[in-house]
Amino acid sequence: MTNSPARIAIASGKGGTGKTTLATNLAAYIAEQEEVVLVDLDVEEPNSGLFFKGDLIHEESNFKMIPQWDEPKCTFCGLCQKVCNFHAVLQLGPTILVFPELCHSCYACSELCPTDALPMISKRTGKLSDFRINNLHFVESRLDVGEEQAVPTISKTKQYSNENYAHLRIEIYDCPPGTSCPVIEATKNADFVILITEPTPFGLHDLTLAIETMRTLKKPMGVVVNRYGIGNDAVIDYCQKENITILAKIPNSRRIAELYSSGKLIYQEIPEVKELLSNILDYCLKASKGDIE
């Protein structure tokens, strides 16, 4: 048995299906019993924090490495511009311009420069914050305006949590929506992935893409159906056909929508939801340890 925490990632093919609601409720529910960390990896739109008011216990900047022009050393050979596939380095006559937001930190221009005129330096890309509300640790990163590369920040945020909360039993990741690179980065070292969807044609369509993505990554996964009762049974039928466990069906209710809209935790008001969370958690923990399948 390993001592590292069980990493549960909560993802969905499309936005607005209840990903953040599930992540915040699950984390708060666990925190009633034991210490837990919730990591918001939706670094472009971190929203989990809107549901918690905690004490800020740590804050640090996120950085990436970019080249910086050392003019006296430059011979204007043009190689840096030529090797940059991202057009982040331009040579305009007797000037070299570096565009930090476009740079992918591949180091090619810096290391291939024959006169070392482009040393790498670190540049701030955003901010990581770590909050505490009793047993609940909440970590989020926020990209600075204009920064577009979510992936390095996601990776850094996970690393922070892994280093600081390795002693806990459970880590929860609130992932970005979609199936593109940020989701891959957010889920790639998770032990179990919960996909949350709605029983509608849109929900089903996006769920199939999300399942395909998680299969590519070979992740054990389960589905939570939110707003169960609306739409049709196509999502349920699909999961059965594909042999994917449905972890819970959260009933459709106006009351839940109202609680969510005011930023309130749902399970504290609706006992039925509390029971569902307990079932989801049990399954995830067993599956993470490999006790299922």
Binding site: C106, Y107, C181, T216
Partner: peptide, 12 residues
């Protein structure tokens, strides 16, 4: 392919 950024450094 999921990790490659396409920077082209390796090819160079």
């Amino acid at each position: 392919p999921l990790s490659c950024e396409g920077c082209g450094y390796c090819a160079r």
